[in-house]
Design a protein around this nucleic acid. Structure first.
Lengths: 247, 247
DNA sequence: CGGCCCATTGAATTGCCTCAACGCTCGTGG
DNA sequence: CCACGAGCGTTGAGGCAATTCAATGGGCCG
């Protein structure tokens, strides 16, 4: 039952044994494995299932006609790849594996029966969508207002905290299986400039980045220079309307 | 019953007479009016209600400690201001009126009873959240990859189509009650540069912008130069999982 | 060993920014 | 009624952050 999805949802609400059971079962029925850099779904496809990340890293991205590429979101274990499937027919962006990934495939109907039997799971699903929206809003701020250094620092803070929320950090270190090109596509910078800014971050002791391991010696300091505030991640079980129903 | 919210939802699903009735009633119980440039909610507040725009323009925005401001989203009639209230306690961004606005206030409980009695309304609410997410993703692409001219052109296309979806356009014109400063805060550009780019757009005949009226003589051409594709707005009633339940 | 992907560095270029000034329009108060 | 100020739009000049182009080096895999 060490399912990252359950760990994720429990950051928001307490789930009953039955709910966890049902969720774990639904997520283990059909499992899909892909190699690094393979596409999970591409823009225009008509997915029949919802995908959840069990292991590895993936990303959402969009490509413009002339080849410019923007990574819209990073997906780590516990994240939902395509809630869109619940309301739209067609993918309006693509999903790609960054590392080798393991995904759970849940059919639309399967998910619907889950949420129909448990209002708490329904609420939890709404919560994940709203968190995704909040993160996307913060990315909008980064790209619109933050400098290159702040953008990268901010991204590192976000990823570290998200990984910590699903138990994938080790002290003040975590994996970061991204190339400088990926970082550039996510932050709207050229890979050349990403390289230079990373050096500044390293030289000022704000990060240690070697191999695929990111270490943040002083998270508070990195947050400060990146103008990072964790509230938008909504990692604490603050409870929205659901609280009223809690025992 | 010419409620922009109903018009909006009907772009996604067909609502029964009863559903429309209930929605219209809930949205007329408590109405809040604000003047231009007033704040609706500020970051950190604990809203008890959900706000819907009935008339006028508003925006979401975030402010960094040093004063930099990013407009995250524009809200026009029919839009939901704060779905967050459904899952989060605290606002992680602010909401401001751009023009004088009329808002409907619906309590959390009121909204919950609406969605509990009608699965279709519940689904419609999920749909609005997913559309908001899709729009936010497209803004991420704009800020990350598009040039200043493309960003502004893209924004004009989006706003025009969104307004058309709720019947607020007149031929190929619509209102645009935004200052050049607002446009800059939304596109991540300085107001000076916005001014210069607007002149280019005007001089090439792509837009006519005078008073607070925007005219797009040739929408297809503006879409082309802005690399705009309308799919992300999901304006057509394409139907997600709900379709299966349709008669 | 050779080839490929990724990281790194340098040099020249540019899109956009900041600073600063000026004009216009509109609302307000004397 | 006119004077004034505030907010917004416009224009010019200079500067900087980030880009493009190009070349080199390192590590890993076939």
């Amino acid at each position: 039952m060490d399912n990252p999805i359950i760990r994720r949802l429990e950051g928001f609400t307490r789930l009953s044994r039955d709910e966890k059971q049902a969720l774990a079962e639904a997520a283990s029925q059909r499992v899909r494995r892909l190699g690094a850099r393979e596409d999970i779904l591409v823009e225009g496809e008509l997915p029949r299932d919802v995908h959840l990340v069990l292991d590895g890293w993936a990303c959402r991205y969009k490509t413009l006609e002339d080849g410019r590429r923007q990574i819209i979101a990073f997906l780590v274990p516990g994240d939902t790849c395509d809630p869109h499937t619940l309301a739209f027919r067609e993918m309006d962006h693509s999903l790609g594996a960054l590392t080798a990934v393991t995904l759970a495939e849940i059919s639309r109907e399967g998910l619907q029966s889950l949420t129909e039997t448990s209002p708490r799971l329904r609420q939890a699903l709404v919560w994940t969508m709203l968190v995704a929206l909040a993160v996307q809003q913060e990315w909008t701020v980064s790209l619109g207002q933050r400098t290159a250094l702040e953008r990268l620092g901010h991204l590192f803070c976000e990823l570290f905290l998200r990984l910590r929320a699903v138990g994938l950090t080790d002290g003040n270190s975590c994996e970061l299986p991204l190339t400088q090109g990926d970082l550039g596509d996510a932050t709207g910078l050229s890979n050349v400039h990403v390289n230079r800014v990373l050096q500044v971050l390293r030289n000022s002791g704000l990060i240690i980045l070697k191999g695929r391991i990111l270490t943040i010696p002083d998270l508070a300091r990195l947050q400060e220079v990146s103008l990072f505030s964790a509230t938008y991640l909504h990692l604490d079980r603050e409870g929205g309307s659901l609280d009223a129903n809690e025992p």
